[in-house]
Design a protein around this nucleic acid. Structure first.
Lengths: 218, 218
DNA sequence: CATTATGTTAAATATGCATTTAAATTAAGA
DNA sequence: TCTTAATTTAAATGCATATTTAACATAATG
């Protein structure tokens, strides 16, 4: 009969701590002990609340993405009436924010990046639920920008050109690639959004031009 | 007095096997046992020849990069007389080859990518020796393309736009991002080089145009 | 062929870490 | 207050795996 509710608080603390540590070190390099230490909790608590390290990881992944998408929706607040150019810019800001975000908000991007280079078995369904809608939206925007003559391959290449530009900024710069460190954080995001948008729109226009010319040659 | 030389052969086999496994699984997820199994060698051999798993990893990293750079030099065979545009294309082909290369040749790219997202303590010096020259060359090319009015930040952003586009193709596509799987391998590299070059040259031109206009506004 | 440094092997050791366990503690209702 | 289920804890367990060991085998040289 005695239904306590103090457990859910600790569970939340663990999830938060785990997100941070997983995002910093990756699945294999984080220890349950480190998570519990960070959450000021006992070593057994992870298994008590989540069953296992793997299940905790899955919970983290799901939670981080839900939060990230809630904070930075794929359309980034642009309305349906917006031009494709504005939509692209919104998309870039959304993705880039996930990558550069500090605290709560960089974690989803960090984990995503690690999953792409060093995949765990972490539930396919989470990937499908969170990544696929974003990708489809991206394809739609680019189909619009490139026009009806664009092939699926050309669209896919442009999607990757844009997405990879953003995702690369999630790379951990351990002293080595110095270009970023010197810039001041507050303006950095805006500068980058502008840069990638400008760069990409020109790139997309060039691809479109190529399509037109190859058609004229037929 | 009895100086045998059959050991160097086994050492080479181990290095080769280790490169493959490390590139597939990353440092933490590969076991010494798996490496030795793959090299048809005893579990103790890694420690006998390399001292430890970490030292083996460092050797792998160094070796893989030397081979990759030898096969795909940063200038990709373009002469000094080449235009900056040709140099950029050479650079893109070089980096992309390291990322998409199969067998021997994709390994350096895979390991690099994992180090960028999930760094080990792997000797800073290797990174300095192999990555830094490439980066400097890239900066030089872009400074040339953007003209003397470009700021260091603008150059750095463009370097990253180009490099990240290439590096993203090293992401392991575990069923989920389907756009790539359907394309046939042989032509894929050439198509991609053309795409990224075209896309990037247009992007760079757009940034240059922006610089010109902001100067005119002063 | 005898010697010796070198290379090879299976088994032992050691360590790090996820997970279990069982006992102790606490919150909440009757 | 008493009871009970929910939590918390320290210690134990067990497993995966890097490293060591020591016995054994082999190539090179005199």
């Amino acid at each position: 009969m005695g239904k306590r509710r103090d457990g859910i608080e600790r569970k939340a603390l663990l999830l938060e701590a785990a997100t941070k540590v997983f995002a910093e070190k990756g699945f294999r390099d984080t220890t349950v002990a480190a998570i519990c230490r960070s959450a000021k909790s006992n070593t057994a608590s992870v298994n008590y609340y989540f069953g296992s390290k793997e299940e905790l990881y899955a919970a983290v992944w799901k939670n981080a993405f839900q939060k990230a998408i809630a904070t930075y929706p794929p359309d980034m607040g642009v309305t349906e009436a917006s031009t494709p150019e504005e939509m692209l810019k919104g998309f870039i800001r959304s993705l880039l924010s996930k990558m550069l975000g500090t605290g709560e908000l960089g974690h989803a991007g960090q984990i995503l990046l690690m999953e792409l280079t060093n995949p765990t078995e972490a539930l396919q369904c989470v990937k499908d639920d969170t990544l696929e809608p974003t990708r489809l939206r991206m394809i739609a925007i680019l189909r619009h920008l490139l026009g009806p003559a664009a092939s699926e391959q050309q669209i896919a290449f442009c999607v990757m050109s844009v997405a990879h530009q953003c995702m690369g900024f999630g790379f951990k710069k351990g002293k080595l690639p110095p270009p970023l460190t010197e810039f001041d954080k507050p303006h950095l995001l805006d500068s980058l959004v502008d840069h990638i948008t400008c760069f990409s729109l020109a790139g997309i226009a060039a691809v479109k031009e190529q399509i037109k010319q190859s058609q004229a040659g037929d």
